[in-house]
Design a protein around this nucleic acid. Structure first.
Length: 378
RNA sequence: UCCCCGGUAGCUCAAUGGUAGAGCGUUCGGCUGUUAACCGAAAUGUUGGAAGUUCGAAUCUUCCCCGGGGAG
């Protein structure tokens, strides 16, 4: 089975309804990818993930390189087999760690030197090395190493990050193609990542430079790192306007439930975010009526489900009172149930978004959902 | 009956004469390509009681109350 992507229907808004075929299954787009940095969606078993209908998940090059090491995973048959996940996997390159681990790394033109947060050892991650690791992992989609910078950033810093990201993308693409040719047929796709911070012209320039490198798909990175939602949308729109219609667009690291449809309307096909999983572990549950901070005292004797409109197995069975108790008691089951619900909620939003695109009424869905969401929990 | 140790925030405990604190708990908030079952804020005190010494007492003195241990 080989790769392909097609966006067959387009909503008036610019939203695309498509299909992404991978060696590990077909994914209906627009798609949300739960984040499993360390080869697991924290507190969620793969059985549940499959039940929830996740077709593709994220894993992280840098973290798996540090532990358990990509060579071990290669020996054990690759990441899919190692973690026993039959669906598709996209691996982030470590570019986000350039941002999130800024205190532990140094950037040069050659690459990024990280001081491991696990044992303090030093590691040089180059664009080539990131490709090597992702080939060893055998992910379906490999991301090129990029330089993700913080917001707000001055223009000169954003310019430098664009230059570096393009140089790194060129090296990553060349290295990837050389390896791919030696293998024969394509077993993996590689995406390039657009940077440019909050500067529209830099975003456009970054996109044009990456287009020259001929990636099978393109990502928009360095957003949702503190800037207002309107800015995220503006930058995303600048980029998607330039990207080829026949290739998937991936907006990295977004977003809040009420924002997902906005990104889809800008022509985004794929998104990922730690919010549903992390917030769940921190007792923040997303519902059709807004966020429920389940540890609040007001839920102590509330026998209703977390979300009365939700069809997930947690909402069918357990009360707010019970979930609040589990969180208050620090029980591990709290994280498991909360994560299950939140991931269901995100994947269900995406299902509704896809359906709305089919019927050409994404804007209506978005408005209705937001109105209900903003009203807040009863 | 005597001797010793102790009594400080809801809990476990700091502070040895100089502005009563911490951790946990409680309440509330934040998390956007995961260094995050994490992080932040707030509320909560007649320092067991009474009387002394002192410019000043959780701290020193005396008596009483309560808990633990020991002796007889």
């Amino acid at each position: 089975m080989s790769f392909s992507f097609s966006a067959s229907k387009t909503d008036a808004s610019g939203a695309r309804r498509g299909n992404l075929a991978t060696p590990h299954g077909k994914i209906e787009t627009p798609a949300f990818m739960p984040v499993g940095t360390s080869a697991t969606i924290k507190a969620l078993r793969h059985e549940a993930l499959e039940e929830l209908g996740a077709g593709i998940i994220l894993a992280n090059t840098y973290h798996l390189y540090l532990r358990p090491g990509e060579e071990l995973i290669r020996k054990l048959g690759g990441l899919h087999r190692f973690m026993s996940w039959p669906g598709a996997i996209l691996t982030d390159s470590g570019g986000y760690q350039v941002f999130s681990l800024s205190a532990l790394r140094k950037i040069t033109d050659e690459g990024v030197t990280f001081r491991s947060h696990l044992d303090g050892s030093e590691h040089l991650l180059t664009p080539e090395k990131a490709v090597e690791i992702q080939l060893a992992l055998g992910s379906d989609i490999a991301m090129a190493l990029d330089e993700c910078i913080e917001t707000p950033s001055p223009r000169d810093k954003a310019e430098a990050a664009v230059v570096r990201t393009t140089q790194w993308a060129r090296r990553a693409r060349r290295h990837f193609l050389a390896k791919e040719n030696s293998h024969g047929e394509s077993e993996q796709w590689q995406f390039g990542i657009v940077q440019g911070a909050t500067f529209a012209d830099l975003r456009r320039e970054s996109a044009r430079q990456l287009l020259d490198l001929g990636f099978p798909g393109y990502a928009v990175g360095g957003l949702a790192v503190g800037e207002p939602h309107a800015m995220t949308c503006e930058m995303t729109g600048e980029v998607t306007a330039l990207l080829p219609a026949d290739r998937p667009r991936y907006l990295m690291g977004v977003g809040r439930p009420e924002q997902l449809a906005d990104y889809v309307a800008l022509g985004i096909d794929m998104m990922d975010c730690v919010l549903p999983t992390r917030a769940a572990r921190h007792a923040c549950l997303y519902t059709s009526e807004g966020r429920v901070l389940i540890k609040n005292a007001r839920y102590a004797a509330d026998e209703r489900p977390v979300d009365p409109l939700c069809t997930c197995s947690v909402c069918k069975r357990y009360s707010r009172a019970y979930l609040r108790h589990l969180f208050a008691a620090g029980e591990i089951t709290a994280a498991i149930l909360g994560t299950h619900h939140n991931v269901h909620f995100y994947l269900d939003i995406m299902r509704q978004i896809r359906e709305a695109i089919e019927f050409g009424n994404l804007a209506k869905f978005s408005a209705e959902m937001q109105a209900r969401y903003v009203a807040g929990p009863a």
